[in-house]
Every structure is written in C-alpha cells, then in structure tokens.
Amino acid sequence: MTRALVAITFAVLAGAPAALAQEGDPERGAILFRQCNSCHVAEPDGPARTGPNLYGVIGRTAGTLEDTRYSPAMREAGENGLVWTQESLDGFLQDPRGYMPGSRMSFRGMRDLQDRMDVIAFLTGDAPMVHSAGIERISADILAMEGDVEYGRYLSSECVACHSEPGDDEGIPAITGIEQEAFILAMHDYRDGHREHQVMTTVTQRLTNEEIASLAAYFAEPAE
C-alpha cells in the first residue's frame, strides 16, 4: 500500500522513471553521497559499515548482502520481493522510516527531488567511487571546484619526479588513474595535517585549493 503510494507520488513529481536516470547528475550525487559516508561506502568489494556497501545497489534484492547487519524489517522486505530500483530507492531516500517502518537507517531523508535523482544517478552509473574515509572533511565547494587541466599538467611535473606515470609502485605509490576525490582528499589531508609524510607534507604546503583541483582534473584525464 505504502509502496504503491510512493510510486504514484513519484510519477506525478518526476514523470517517467527513465527521466530519473537522464536527469540525475552523478558527479553532484557523488558529492551529496558524502553525507551517507559515515554509514555506507560505495566501492567494489567495499566493506559494510553500519549500513551495507551501496556499490551496485540498483537491481539488488533488499537485505541480502553477506556480512551486513540489516534490520528484520529490511530482510523481510527483501523476502517479500523488494528489489532496489531507481523508483524504490527514490521512495526510500525521501522518507526512510515512512517507506519502511522498522528500518534502522537513522537518516531523516532527502526532500529535494533533484538531490535524490543525483544520488541515485551516482549509485546507478559508473560514477567515480568515493574513497570515503574522511571525505566529510572536504567541503562540497572544494570538491566541486573546476580545475585548470593545463595548469594541472604543469604542476604534475613535480609529482612525476617521484611517482611513476604510469608505473609500478615500489617504494612510492603510483598515482595514475587515482580517483579524483581520493586525490583531492589526500592532498588536503597532507596539507592540513590529517596525514603525515615528510615529502608530501612539504610539497602540499604551498598548494592552493585551486591548484589541487587542477592537479586532480589533470590526473583524471585519460592517459594519452
């Protein structure tokens, strides 16, 4: 009964389900997803935290991941056939407790339709994974900053004196193909003292937020 109601509401607000995938912005969704990070990761083979790993959640039957603690209500919903689709996830995200009484998810819900569409687009597609540990330290403004790729290319010449591009990572980790957000987080963490390494702490001291964004944008470019 409740589910039917949500579906109707959804149809009225957002039109056909296909529109959801088309209009959601996965990159913005990745940024919004950081508010979920204290309880969820979204990484291939990522661990369960308080809540399940949400990588590949679309198409999954509710309450069925191994080594994950679910509420009885969630398991029961899965046994009754609840599969996470864009629509069902939209309903759950809007009002978790209302959608599923007995859910343990202590999240008030996302009221804004666009926010939900963006997060769902992120969880649906091949959006960049969030290396989540500590990502909440980085503000959405900084994560959304647009980098100057050409400047990033120049700045990167300092990095590749030690980090092979591409290369093995004996002694010093390779940085080719690093996720943009993971890169941004690492640079900010070294600069701001959340991580320590003599060389990296020194190198990042003079990097501005814009320069970190430029480096991230350059390293995110496909290799030549």
Binding site: V160, C162, S164, E170, G171, V199
Partner: peptide
Amino acid sequence: YRESLGWYDSITAD
C-alpha cells in the same frame, strides 16, 4: 630507502 628506489625508477623515466 625503499622510497629512494621508487624515486630512482620514476625520475629516470621522467
């Protein structure tokens, strides 16, 4: 020391 080994490979490739 291990860092220096990684550095050598990277900088000579550079």
